[in-house]
Amino acid sequence: MIIGIPKEIKTLENRVAMTPGAVESLVRQGNEVLVEAGAGLGSGLADAEYIASGAKMVSAAEAWGAEMVIKVKEPLASEFQYLRKGLLLFTYLHLAAAPELTKALLDSGTTGVAYETVKSADGTLPLLTPMSEVAGRMATQVGAHYLEKTQGGRGILLGGVPGVYPAEVLVLGGGVVGTNAARIAMGMGARVTILDLSHQRLQYLDEVFQGRITTMMSTEPNIRQMVQRADLVIGAVLLPGAKTPNLITRDMLPLMKEGSVIVDVAVDQGGCIETTKATTHDNPTYVIDGVVHYGVANMPGAVPRTSTFALVNQTAPYALRLAAKGTDALKDDAGLALGLNTWDGKLTCPAVGAALNIDSMTPEEALAQM
């Protein structure tokens, strides 16, 4: 198969979809790999390393002309021209919050396999997890930074100092993002509360953290109570493939402290705070009702060396299977099949269909027609 690795063009997105090591594995399998010149530079990976691994360095158009294109982030409007029937696109898509991209994929007939909806046998999300780990840990670091007075925050040191009360951190969601955010916040000395809908998950978190964080059920009264106390709120809610519900509504914002900070990691899927909007690394924050909002939709792109290797560790085995068998690989793996979001002009992710009010079919129904 001919495989293309374009350079990411999202603002200050420095990750790359495949490392030279992964490229070498693809080439050894008999594939031709076309890497856009400079694609790996942001992650400290030189063109010479890709050439040594067997890749051919090409233009963006040539990389996009491949049979399968592997990316990190979703195609932007300027890349819609490359979408076409017969193209297998393997990347993060987050379609529930992207109606224009969804339309472009459907109109073009592109087969879109989304990292974020692939599941493993145990029901976890193996291609989302590594970036969730990065984003969760970054969320606390970012929040601590924007709590500084010079950044518009309350002027609070997250962990306090002896004799001075530390910051209160509220984490909405006890999944991978929330757990990693809580771990870093606790390690920095903050007082941490995690809210989640699952009592079983809260039991697990209480055991893992040995009672050093507070766990609460995620109910509206509890959220309303806790936002009044919080200095930093981290949005860590995930419904795979679906639009994220707004847990903090517009009317709750005036209850929050002046200079408190919201970091909404769920922004890729629409955000779990009603006032969240996507921002970029070069203009990351805005203020509403005195509350600093951080909504960068590609947080791990700020630490690309770590993020690229963490992501490719997980995506490369799937890429090898798709390269070997094309869409037939989906028929061999029910978890990988769940990554199928678009095919032949049809939406194949019901959660996205519900979010965007578009007719859809299941991946299984689509595979039966292939």
Rank of each mutant, 00 (worst) to 15 (best):
K149F: 09
K149C: 06
K149Q: 09
K149D: 01
K149M: 11
K149N: 01
K149W: 05
T150V: 14
Q151H: 14
Q151S: 13
Q151R: 14
Q151G: 03
G152Y: 00
G152R: 02
G152S: 08
G153L: 00
G153Y: 00
R154Y: 02
R154T: 00
R154S: 14
R154C: 02
R154H: 12
G155I: 13
G155L: 10
G155E: 09
I156H: 02
I156M: 13
I156Q: 12
I156A: 12
L157A: 14
L157V: 15
L157K: 03
L157E: 10
L158I: 14
L158K: 01
L158W: 02
L158N: 00
L158F: 01
G159H: 07
G159M: 12
G160F: 12
G160T: 11
G160R: 05
G160I: 11
G160K: 07
G160E: 07
V161D: 01
V161I: 15
P162I: 06
P162D: 11
P162R: 03
P162L: 10
G163Y: 09
G163W: 05
G163F: 14
G163K: 13
V164A: 14
V164I: 15
V164S: 15
V164H: 14
Y165E: 15
Y165D: 14
Y165Q: 15
P166W: 00
P166A: 04
P166S: 08
P166R: 08
A167T: 12
A167W: 00
A167G: 15
E168F: 06
E168L: 08
E168C: 10
E168D: 13
E168A: 09
V169T: 11
V169D: 00
L170C: 12
L170Q: 10
V171M: 04
V171W: 06
V171Y: 02
V171E: 04
V171Q: 06
V171F: 04
V171P: 10
L172T: 06
L172S: 06
L172P: 13
L172R: 07
L172Q: 04
L172G: 06
G173K: 06
G173S: 09
G174L: 05
G174C: 07
G174P: 09
G174Q: 06
G174E: 11
G175W: 08
G175M: 04
G175Q: 02
G175N: 03
G175H: 03
G175D: 07
V176K: 03
V177Q: 08
V177G: 03
V177E: 04
V177H: 02
V177I: 15
V177F: 09
G178I: 04
G178K: 02
G178T: 06
G178R: 05
G178D: 04
G178V: 04
G178Q: 08
G178N: 02
T179N: 01
T179E: 10
T179G: 10
N180Y: 08
N180R: 05
N180I: 07
A181K: 04
A182S: 13
A182Q: 01
A182Y: 07
R183F: 01
R183E: 15
R183S: 14
R183L: 13
I184H: 05
I184N: 01
I184T: 04
I184L: 15
I184E: 11
I184K: 08
I184G: 00
A185I: 08
A185E: 03
A185N: 11
A185R: 01
M186Y: 11
M186D: 11
M186V: 12
G187R: 05
G187W: 07
G189A: 06
